[in-house]
Write a protein that binds this DNA or RNA. Structure first.
Lengths: 343, 343
DNA sequence: AATAGTATTGCAAATGTTTTCATAAAATCG
DNA sequence: CGATTTTATGAAAACATTTGCAATACTATT
C-alpha cells in the first residue's frame, strides 16, 4: 500500500488516481449513497493506495463541523477530574468527536484564555467545569455562539446547559451523616474556595446544616488544604493536635479525607473509634483504603459519559433546547465513621 | 465591546472596519514588525470592537502549523498518566500549542485508530506512550511525515525520539532492593503485559534479577492484577493466604502496591514487620499512605514537561535531529520494606 | 534635486474541501 | 419509441486565511 507517497496526497490526487472528479471523491466520504458502488470501490482503492487521510481543517473551513470538542478543567492531575475526563473523552469519541483538553489551575482568568485558545480552533462545543465563570468567558462563548456545557455541578437555574450533581446537597449530606451519629465537635478541612464554586457550595451547605443544629465551627476547627494528600495530612495533623480534639473531620473531598485518615493513623488514633472521617467524591481508591472511607458519592463516570452523550447530540442536532441533568448523590457509609467516642 | 456581532466576523470584516486590506490584518498577527505601529493600533482596536477570533482551521489549510499536538495514552484514569498528561499539556501550552487527547485502553489497534483520527486534524506532532506500537501505526506516522515522540519509556535504540525512563532498570532496582534485604520468598503482582511494553520490561527485568540469584518464582506466587486498587487488593489477598506466605511483594506499579498494602492491613499483617511491599512509579499519594510506600520513582512530571519542551522545539525548528532523553530513576525507601521477618 | 534604498501596503493566487447547479446517461412509462 | 424521471458525475464557487510580488510613499545620500 501507499506506493506513491510522492507529493501532497489530497482529494484531487485521489480523484486523479481513480479517474474521477474531486467532487465525486468528496461525495464518497460524505454521501456515499449518492455515488455508484463501482466508482466507490475504485475510489476507495485509490485512497488505500495513496494513503489518503481527510483534512478536517479544510472541511472546517468550508463550514462543516470541526469534529472537536473542547474541555476545560481546573486540573488533570487529580483523581476526580481524571475520571470525568476519561468518561467524557470516550463518550464523545464514539460520536466521532475528538477532545481538545486544557486546564487552568483553578484560575478563572486562565480559564478565559483557554476558552479563547480553543475557540481559535473552531471547536464545535466547549465544556467547562462548574457554574462559576468570569463574565468575560460567558460573554465570549455567547458572542461566538459556541455551544457550551457546564459539567460537574448541577443547578436548576444554571444559565448554561449542565450535567452534574448538586454540590450544596453533597455538603449537607455529609454534615447530616455526622450529625446523625451525634457528632458535635466537628473539624472542617476544605480547599480554597476562590474560583471554585464546587468547594464553595459544599462548604456553605455544611455550615448551614450545622448552624441549624446550633453548631458553629470555631476558627481553629476550620482548616484549609489544597488538593494534595500530603498537604491535607499536614493540615489534619495540626487540627488533631489542638488542645481539644474534634470527634469528627468533615473533608471537602476524598483526597483531603485520605490525607486526614493517614494523619490520624500516623498519630496513633483509631478510626472510627477515636475519630470519624467523612469525605466527598468517592474517588477511585476511596473504597479500598483501610478502613474504607465513608463519603458522599459523586458519580464522576456517569457525569462524564452522560455529558458526552447529551452534548454531542445537542451539537449535532442543533435543536437547542436547554437541558439540565442532575446526577444522584449517595452517602456511602464505610469504615471511617462511627458514633462519638464515649470517653 | 463587540458592538457588531452582526454577521461572520472574519479577517476581511476587521480589515473593512480598520480601513485596511485583509493582508495587513493578517500581517499584524503574523509579522507585526512589518506593519506600521499606527496601523497596528487601528487594527487591534477593530479586532477588539468586533470580537474577532483567529481561525486556525484556515491557517492550517494554508499550510501553517495547526498549533495542536496529539497525545495518545492507554488511559487517562490512573494516577501516573494523569500526571504526565498535565505536565505535557502545560508544557506545550506555554509554547502556544493545544492538546488533542485520545486514549486506547491498552489496545494497540485502537491506538492506530486514534492516531488516524488525530492525523485528520492535521496535528503538528503526535506523542505516544511507550515504544511498542503496531506496524500500521508506525507506518502511518512515517508516511504522513508527522513528527512523533515516544514518552514514558526510554531505550537507546528507539526508532522514534523518546523521553522517558528505563523500565527494565526500574524492575531491576525494585528486585535488587528486596534482594539486598535478604528476601528470597517474593510474590509478584503485575498487570497484563500484552500491548504494554512498560509492564513487560519491568517484569522480565525482575525475573532476570531474581534468576541471577538463583531464585525463580513459582506460579502461585506470580499474580496478575489490572490497574485498580480494589482488584489488586483481591489479588494480593489470595496471594497472602496461600499455605506459605511470601516475605515480600514486588508490585508492577504503585496502584497495585497500594492495593497490596491495604490487603495486608486488612489481613492484620504488620507492614513491614510481617511483609515487605515495593511498588514502581511513586505516584502522587504513595508518599502519604501509612506506612509510606517504598517504590522506584519514575519522574512523571519531569517526563511530561521535558517531552513537551523538547517536542515543541523539535516541531517548530524542524531541525530533525533524533533525540532520546533518559530520565533518572530512584529507589525511594519509605516504610513498607524491611528485613525478612526472623520467625 | 535626483537616485537609491527602505518601509508600508494592497492585489491576487493558493491552500483542500464541500456543495449547488448543470449536464449527461440510464431507466421507467405510456 | 419518445417523453419523463432518476441516477451519476463534473465544473465552479465558496470558505478564511497567508504570502510573493508589485506598487507606492517616504528617507537618506550624494
Amino acid at each position: 500500500m501507499a506506493k506513491f507517497q510522492k507529493d501532497k496526497v489530497d482529494i484531487v490526487a485521489v480523484a486523479k488516481a481513480a479517474k474521477v472528479s474531486p467532487s465525486t471523491v468528496s461525495r464518497t466520504f460524505n454521501h456515499p449513497n449518492l455515488v455508484n458502488p463501482a466508482t466507490r470501490k475504485k475510489i476507495n482503492r485509490a485512497v488505500q493506495r495513496l494513503g489518503y487521510i481527510r483534512n478536517r481543517a479544510a472541511q472546517t473551513m468550508h463550514g462543516k463541523r470541526s469534529g472537536t470538542i473542547g474541555l476545560v478543567v481546573p486540573t488533570i492531575n487529580h483523581a476526580i477530574f481524571a475520571e470525568v475526563i476519561q468518561a467524557f473523552s470516550d463518550s464523545i469519541d464514539s460520536a466521532g468527536f475528538t477532545l481538545l483538553l486544557a486546564s487552568h489551575g483553578y484560575n478563572l482568568d486562565r480559564e478565559y484564555a483557554m476558552v479563547r485558545k480553543l475557540l481559535e480552533h473552531r471547536i464545535d462545543g466547549v465544556a467547562l467545569v462548574g457554574l462559576e465563570h468570569s463574565k468575560a468567558t460567558v460573554q465570549l462563548i455567547k458572542q461566538q455562539r459556541t455551544p457550551a456545557l457546564a459539567i460537574w455541578n448541577y443547578s436548576n437555574d444554571s444559565p448554561l446547559p449542565c450535567v452534574g450533581a448538586d454540590n450544596r446537597l453533597a455538603g449537607r449530606l455529609a454534615a447530616e451523616h455526622l450529625l446523625a451519629l451525634e457528632h458535635r465537635d466537628i473539624g472542617l478541612i476544605f480547599p480554597k474556595t476562590t474560583d471554585n464554586d464546587r468547594a464553595h457550595n459544599r462548604l456553605s451547605a455544611v455550615r448551614d446544616a450545622l448552624y441549624e443544629k446550633g453548631i458553629s465551627i470555631p476558627n481553629e476547627r476550620d482548616s484549609e488544604a489544597p488538593y494534595s494528600i500530603s498537604q491535607a495530612k499536614q493540615a489534619a495533623t495540626s487540627l488533631l493536635t489542638e488542645r481539644i480534639r474534634p470527634t469528627a473531620l468533615l473533608c471537602g473531598n476524598d483526597v483531603i479525607a485520605q490525607g486526614a485518615l493517614f494523619a490520624a493513623q500516623n498519630l496513633g488514633l483509631k478510626v472510627p473509634n477515636d475519630l470519624s472521617i467523612i469525605g466527598i467524591g468517592d474517588f477511585k481508591g476511596s473504597a479500598d483504603v483501610e478502613p474504607g472511607l465513608t463519603t458522599i458519592r459523586i458519580p464522576a463516570e456517569t457525569i462524564g459519559q452522560l455529558a458526552g452523550e447529551r452534548f454531542t447530540k445537542y451539537i449535532t442536532s442543533d435543536d437547542s433546547e436547554h437541558f439540565r441533568l442532575c446526577c444522584e448523590l449517595e452517602c456511602i457509609v464505610r469504615g471511617t465513621t462511627g458514633p462519638v467516642p464515649t470517653c
